[in-house]
Design a protein around this nucleic acid. Structure first.
Lengths: 258, 258
DNA sequence: ACTGTCCGTTCGAAACGCGTGAACGGTTGG
DNA sequence: CCAACCGTTCACGCGTTTCGAACGGACAGT
């Protein structure tokens, strides 16, 4: 499934690798990129200029940045999701009522993409302390609460397909990396109705997630509520309370899907 | 300035052309794309599969769509703008208080990109009637209100550079297509403090825009308020009222820039 | 002023890989 | 059961990308 059976277009791949590198380093110079990707400067030069010409990159002096042209495509992809407009509102109310962080994610190509994200009480945070999360973030399915909630609603064959494609990479030492352990947990999630992520994605971050399913049983996405461990209590009752909140919010959304 | 002095990477260009075609047709099949771009099916096949493999396109049966991978880059580009978080709130309040459509745009590479967009009273609209606008939209500078407001705040040389790069294409028969006419209008905009777009972008759409400038005179972006002609009155006083609203909102924002 | 070093840019030459078109297998509908 | 559509595969030849070396400009140290 991972095979590039059709001959991959290498040139496009290097262009995209450049764009990724630019985003990940939050702005980079031509030489930096040539070093990092082990390409000749002239090669990078040509790629950068075509990407700049197309609007996907912007130059600011000697450094290049990700261009706003991406926004048009990103918004397009996001709004293609029929649930986005409503889910968005639910994210805001969840964040506001809990005071924690809330987001709505969907599965695409075996990965979890955050379509909307909100913080409940930014006033509590120092200005320098910004969240590592934002809309558009891509996660693995097995190490975040909403991802696990989604997996629990998918068929076993689909889950195996996804795990086969992406594996179970560990991002902390709490990450579940054993496939049968994960299947056990998915079973528990189905019983409980919600999933918990206890520092499995990011040390010091805890969250609770639950999936949205359409009347005909199709899984549409998942909401999660989370925050730093010092604000998200670990005891059963606190978790339960958040889960209950999620469930009522989700069932009110599901009621509109007739 | 428009020259592709450095050899453009054609392969990347066709990949991007494919992605554009997919977005513009809101999902397309391989054969459609091959027809439209006059490429061999095998060529399109290879491009699509690498783009899918990278997450920038998604396949749904025989049709491909824009992938959520774009969202990550789009959000990155958007949040790189230091004004985005605050401007966003102002867009919402402008939309709410006026009941019209409001947006915040910035200039990049001589084009105007909408960073945030909101509708005041969606309840008035039929569900099928959705706005042609959304965040991420890219406009020419000369035929939208905020674009003209931005041009009016830029140096003449920069304006000439932009017009030289992109021209003054007409999108309706109200579009200003003569360069000296436009310069006259920019002068008027500087006097008045705001710009008006009277069906110059889109027939039946009217809007008012004004620019945000930093304390040291740098132009940071522009807000606009607009709507269908049947809701946006054309008489002087109504326009003036909206302009005044814009100005107070903008000066409250500018006050926070110390 | 001169040198060293960094940046991006240009250019010719060489090989690699992209683009092609024809043929294939699968599915749908007449 | 054939026709028409879809996406897929493959070998071949040309075009493009890639490279490295040389260039010019900006800047800092001496």
């Amino acid at each position: 499934m991972t095979d590039d059976r059709p001959r991959p277009v290498k040139t496009t791949q290097t262009s995209l690798a450049l764009v990724r590198a630019v985003r990940d380093s939050d702005g980079a110079t031509l030489s930096e990129l040539a070093d990092r990707l082990e390409l000749a400067k002239s090669t990078v030069h040509n790629h950068l200029h075509t990407l700049i010409d197309e609007g996907f990159l912007v130059r600011d002096g000697d450094t290049v940045h990700v261009g706003l042209e991406f926004l048009s495509f990103g918004e397009h992809a996001r709004e293609r999701n029929p649930l986005y407009a409503t889910a968005r509102r639910h994210v805001y109310t969840l964040a506001k009522t809990t005071g924690h962080e809330a987001d709505f994610i969907v599965e695409e190509n075996g990965r979890a993409y955050s379509l909307e994200y909100a913080i409940g009480e930014p006033s509590r945070r120092g200005l320098s302390e910004s969240s590592p999360f934002r809309a558009g973030n891509r996660f693995y399915m097995h190490n975040c609460a909403s991802g696990k909630a989604l997996l629990a609603s998918l068929s076993e064959s689909r889950v195996r397909e996804i795990l086969g494609r992406w594996g179970l990479p560990a991002t902390t030492d709490h990450t579940v990396t054993d496939e049968s352990d994960l299947f056990d947990e998915l079973e528990a999630i189905r019983r409980r109705g919600y999933a918990v992520n206890d520092e499995e994605l990011l040390a010091g971050y805890r969250s609770v997630g639950a999936a949205v399913t359409s009347p005909d049983g199709e899984v549409l996405g998942a909401f999660s509520i989370g925050g730093p461990t010092y604000r998200m209590a670990t005891d059963e009752s606190a978790i339960e309370e958040i889960a209950r909140l999620l469930e009522t919010e989700i069932s009110s959304l599901e009621a509109t899907l007739f």
